[in-house]
Design a protein around this nucleic acid. Structure first.
Lengths: 238, 238
DNA sequence: AGGTGTGAACGTATTCACAGCG
DNA sequence: CGCTGTGAATACGTTCACACCT
């Protein structure tokens, strides 16, 4: 039916609807990929929570206490961690700083990632000005737009570049992560060109299901769908 | 461990980590709630895709063709729809317009929902100016902020109100849906006050796991976590 | 005693495969 | 004959419960 499928774009499905033939090849091959993506998606929350505890001076935490903060079960945390090794001390719990660093390392957050942003409309502007990316391991390295009025403009010491040279700049700068904040109609094309430049992970804000090769990971940010699914549960006259 | 848990805030888990004791009471009770939340979360994408096909003049579509557009399996679409009834014609497929309308009705998208937005920083501003909510059944009805410089300002014919009267205004205006775009430190407090005013669905942009009663649905929008989980798969060097 | 790490049990979601309808 | 709708089979994810460590 389709030649390309979204990979790990698991906003909607529990498991990747990936045909066996398109087996992913993310980084290392072999025994890896036994770890469910849903586990990987929970790890950032663990890191964030552990860092928060650490900042509040809490040096040690049990899986039960951590579960309470995050809103999952203690068994789930222990099971998730067991995919990667043994991080706790029996009878004691986990060292918050140590565990945060260990998970961050697993996620490759122990370095800074340069990110390419496509689209400098309302959303792109908000993303550019957002202060939360830098401390989370991400630096907006380049911004692209189609609008000639925007091109050449300077923001945060970043010059907005023409969309036309997106592939080339991404390749030249060796960027592996892209954020798509362009109108829906241009999203697929932008994704294709990012991937051609070497991007292997895409954060997609456009309300479009991107078709990408198996080596590329996509996550959708879709506030409209989120709202539209919540209305199912809201009792209108309440 | 915790008195309140997030409900259906299933950004991370497959199934709601809901203790049986806190059984949800979303709208109608009884035989309902047999339908998995993950199915509900897929429906908006079906609607969006069907409407897109309709606009392109395509009046009929098979589950297989629709699956191709969305990137799921045909069996999943048929199974999902089967929770709600029979919408197709054997040997023919589905009428795009009819099915879009049917699902929209299931999701209660056949009306306009008034939404309260808390936070008028970078993100809140972008949300206010976003043109995608209105055609998707959502109208930003009120905007709240703490910053006295912002309060009183007018945007799109909306006056920015003081955060102090959030609960009262939401109650007075009978608003059931809130969007949280305040700093992480104020997110829980804002959620509590929205809920006190009558809000039953929250779209949370703050990087915080909200604790809410079971009758409230929460969805997280967390771009940082999304990025941080994708780096796991990215092969840094080439 | 307190709490991890993990086999085994369980529950949930997806996919298969086909009867049956138009 | 093509395609839906759905029982049955399978795959996957979560939770239980406890051996084991400190």
């Amino acid at each position: 039916m389709q030649a390309m499928r979204q990979t790990r774009a698991i906003t909607l499905a529990t498991a990747a609807p990936e045909p066996a033939a398109y087996y992913p090849s993310n980084g290392a091959v072999g025994a890896e990929e036994a770890i469910p993506d849903i586990v990987i998606r929970r790890l950032p929350v663990y890191v964030r929570t552990l860092r928060g505890l650490r900042e509040r001076g809490i040096r040690s935490v049990s899986s039960d206490a951590l579960a309470g903060h995050i809103g999952v079960t203690a068994a789930q945390i222990r099971r998730d961690l067991s995919y990667f090794g043994k991080f706790g001390k029996q009878g004691k719990g986990y060292d918050t700083e140590f565990l945060a660093a260990a998970i961050a390392r697993i996620l490759q957050l122990d370095r800074q990632w340069r990110v390419a942003l496509a689209g400098f409309g309302n959303l792109g502007r908000a993303i550019t000005h957002y202060r939360g990316f830098a401390p989370s391991s991400f630096t907006i390295a380049t911004v692209f737009d189609r609008n000639p009025d925007h091109i050449g403009q300077e923001i945060n010491g970043l010059r907005i570049l023409s969309d036309a040279c997106l592939t080339e700049v991404i390749a030249a700068e060796d960027i592996r992560i892209g954020i798509i904040a362009v109108p829906a109609a241009f999203a697929q094309e932008t994704a294709d060109r990012m991937i051609a430049g070497g991007v292997r992970a895409i954060l997609n804000y456009a309300p479009v299901v991107l078709k990408v090769p198996a080596m590329v990971t996509v996550r959708e940010i879709d506030p409209v769908s989120a709202l539209q699914s919540m209305t199912y549960y809201v009792n209108a006259a309440g």
